[in-house]
Design a protein around this nucleic acid. Structure first.
Length: 165
DNA sequence: AAGAAGATTCGCT
DNA sequence: GCGAATCTTCTTA
């Protein structure tokens, strides 16, 4: 279990969004009701986990980019031998690896109890920063990456995570 | 049917 | 900091 500390938004009519050119067999989960998982294999090496964010029929979602391990670190580390605690789920591909997320979870409702789910513990956050998104070529100017300011488990460069950015 | 591109990671310099 | 690895999916012919 962990705390989500960094995300990126992919909107409808956003050239960087996989759903930009309509529904395909791969991205269909993005069109599900908000809260459903969209998992896909990126660069042949990493699974990336998104959460659909709009009403049914609208293709948009949020990419989970980094997570602060809270419970079960031993288990996560088993999947990621050799990584420091800080790096266990720092980065979208590492995050899924630590939780052993794969295509089996594509399309499930993350707001319902199950093997993989997302909830709130009611805790508040001091400050949320914003920056441009990482690793994309289209729509690279939009500041749609959000993160908990000053958190130790963020991916991205020092500059991107700076408060002033 | 073939080819290019991609929301990354890891290892080396 | 830079470049290769790796493979699925979508686009174009």
């Amino acid at each position: 279990m962990g705390r989500i500390v960094e995300t990126e938004a992919y909107l409808e009519n956003d050239p960087a969004c996989h759903a930009f050119r309509g529904m395909t067999p791969r991205n269909r989960s993005l069109f599900l009701e908000a809260g459903h998982a969209y998992v896909y294999l990126c660069y042949g090496t990493s699974y990336l986990l998104n959460v659909s964010s709009e009403e049914p029929g609208t293709g948009a979602g949020v990419l989970l980019r980094a997570l602060e391990p809270l419970v079960g670190m031993e288990h996560m580390r088993q999947a990621r031998l050799g990584l420091r605690l800080r790096d266990l789920a720092r980065g979208p591909g590492r995050l899924t690896s630590a939780f052993q997320v794969d295509l089996r979870y594509d399309g499930i409702d993350l707001f319902l109890p199950g093997p993989l789910w997302i909830g709130s513990d009611g805790a508040t956050v001091d400050s949320i920063g914003a920056s441009t998104r990482i690793g994309i070529t289209k729509g690279a100017d939009s500041r749609l990456r959000y993160f908990i300011t000053g958190n130790d488990y963020l991916s991205g460069s020092r500059r991107l995570n700076a408060k002033s950015d």
